[in-house]
C-alpha cells in the first residue's frame, strides 16, 4: 500500500436485505481499486468482513421485521486508516455484547468480529439514527 492515501467518502443508501451482502463485499474491493489503492487480500477480507457483519446486524437486529427500512453505508480512507460507517434507525447493539460466545453457539459472533477486526469502534445514537463507526488500520 502507498504511504498516504485519501479517497473521497462514498455514501450508499440501501434497504436492509441480505441480498445486498455480496454486492457490499464487491463494493469494498471496487472502492480501493477505484481509488488506486493496492491493498492486500487479507486487509480487503478484514474490511469486507467487518462491513458485512455490521450490515448483518442491522438486518437481524435493527430491523428484524422489515426488509424495507433504510441503511446508510459510508466508506472513506484517511492515510492508512479505513473508516466504515453503518447507520440505521434501530436502537443499536446492546453494550457488552461483543464477547466471543461459547464455541458451540451458532450465533453471536458478529459484534465480536467487528471489534476484533477494527482498531476502534464507536456506537452511538444521534438524530434518530444509530451510527456504527469502524476504523480499520490497513497494512498492519
Amino acid at each position: 500500500m502507498q504511504k498516504v492515501q485519501h479517497i473521497v467518502p462514498i455514501w450508499l443508501e440501501m434497504d436492509a436485505h441480505p441480498r445486498h451482502v455480496p454486492w457490499l463485499r464487491s463494493f469494498v474491493q471496487t472502492y480501493f481499486k477505484g481509488g488506486g489503492v493496492d491493498i492486500s487480500s487479507r486487509d480487503c477480507m478484514k474490511a469486507q468482513l467487518a462491513l458485512v457483519e455490521a450490515f448483518d446486524n442491522v438486518v437481524e437486529h435493527a430491523y428484524p421485521k422489515s426488509r424495507k427500512k433504510p441503511v446508510l453505508v459510508g466508506l472513506y480512507l484517511k492515510g492508512k486508516t479505513l473508516h466504515m460507517e453503518v447507520l440505521d434507525q434501530g436502537r443499536g447493539p446492546p453494550q457488552k455484547k461483543h464477547k466471543l460466545p461459547s464455541v458451540m453457539s451458532d450465533h453471536g459472533r458478529g459484534l465480536f468480529l467487528i471489534y476484533r477486526l477494527s482498531s476502534r469502534v464507536e456506537s452511538k445514537r444521534e438524530n434518530g439514527w444509530h451510527r456504527l463507526h469502524m476504523r480499520i488500520r490497513l497494512g498492519k
Binding site: Q48, L49, E53, D56, G110, L113
Partner: peptide, 16 residues
C-alpha cells in the same frame, strides 16, 4: 471465498 458469522453459525449447526 468468504464466510461471515452467519455462515460459521450454519457450519456449527450442522456439526451439532
Amino acid at each position: 471465498n468468504f464466510v461471515d458469522s452467519m455462515g460459521l453459525g450454519a457450519i456449527i449447526s450442522l456439526m451439532r
